[in-house]
Design a protein around this nucleic acid. Structure first.
Lengths: 199, 199
DNA sequence: TTGACTAGAACGAACGTTCATTCTATTCTC
DNA sequence: GAGAATAGAATGAACGTTCGTTCTAGTCAA
């Protein structure tokens, strides 16, 4: 009888999204290796068999999460690139994006910035070779050609421009910041930009 | 008869150091959860039982590694604090230390900067609350009082000052840098210091 | 009726840990 | 100084558990 599930959605799309949401929660909360497929099934109120039907297994769930996340991030950055003209304005917008994503979807941010993907997704490239990170590099290189950013190795410029923000964000995710994260935005941005800007 | 081990040392100290060295190698190479106690035993040519005798188990090996590493790092920074007077000189020396440690003992650096300790050492504080990191914070705060560093939140200053270096180091450990790491030192330092220095 | 989907019991391999035993070097006794 | 006694160290087979995965039976919509 269908009684037990009368009021819970059982569409494939709903199943997929439930699994992904709870897997993200568990992966970031306890870590990938401290989370079993049975844990995910239990948390998302979905059977183990369903998880294997939709994703090919535990690694498939993680891979799907990772890919969706990179796509989302790429879209956000693409949007910023279209709506801002100067390197300064673009970098500022990206910094704001990183901070606000951290507040709104900390688990997503943690999974992207902080997880060691290569331990459980062996074929994956390191995150800094991924599309959104390459776009940030590219944007900095363009800013350099345009004379907005000091001439130097673009890798160094990108690292220094966003390195402070990323450290503050990981500090926030670790729960070691004294103030709410947004209060650090202005100073962090000033420092990052001052590090590389042509005066 | 002692024949089989005639030419291999079997002192407790030797056993301990063998286990620690090979465990560090395996933990950083494949990750903590992809390394079994039997792997460590096999790699260090020591029995599983010995590992349990000296460390209380797999987690004990990791904890010992982590603690020894923080002690070493604390000593290095203490030494720098004693031998340099200004914040600028001290921060420069720490940046050089981070770079040279990365070249000389990349596994140590990876285990310190890059591993997710809290996944396998549940009681441990996040690395940024550890002694050496707190010392760096303190040093920056002093530099601010002395007027060498722009007045701002010390957490932000520390993050921006060293954030670029740390990102380059993790890039190196991921194998994504085009140039040898030392070639990035000067530019990275310049950016970091420019981000926070009083002009 | 078919085919996509769900369910959860069952499976086998791998893991961390334990333990009874053996080895080795030092200390004690005479 | 020879031999017994002791304690720390080392061994690896065995154990119980957990995990990722598979499998078979069943459900539901079109």
């Amino acid at each position: 009888m269908t009684h037990a599930n009368r009021d819970t959605q059982r569409t494939p799309a709903h199943t997929r999204s439930q699994v992904l949401a709870h897997a993200l929660n568990l992966f970031t909360g306890r870590g990938y290796f401290n989370t079993s497929v049975h844990d995910i099934a239990h948390a998302s109120k979905v059977s183990v068999g369903s998880i294997y039907h939709h994703f090919k297994g535990k690694e498939g769930v993680a891979r799907t999460l990772y890919e969706e996340l990179l796509v989302q991030m790429t879209e956000e950055i693409t949007y910023i690139m279209r709506n801002h003209a100067t390197a300064r304005s673009r970098c500022r917008a990206i910094t704001e994006l990183l901070f606000s994503m951290t507040i709104e979807t900390p688990e997503t941010m943690e999974f992207m910035l902080y997880a060691k993907h290569r331990e459980f997704l062996p074929d994956e490239l390191p995150i800094c070779s991924s599309k959104p990170f390459l776009m940030m590099n590219e944007l900095v290189a363009q800013g350099m050609e345009a004379g907005e950013i000091l001439p130097m190795d673009p890798t160094v410029a990108t690292a220094c421009l966003f390195g402070g923000s990323i450290r503050l964000i990981t500090g926030y995710l670790d729960g070691v910041l004294e103030q709410p994260l947004p209060e650090y935005l202005e100073e962090t941005w000033s420092c990052g930009w001052r590090a590389v800007a042509v005066v």
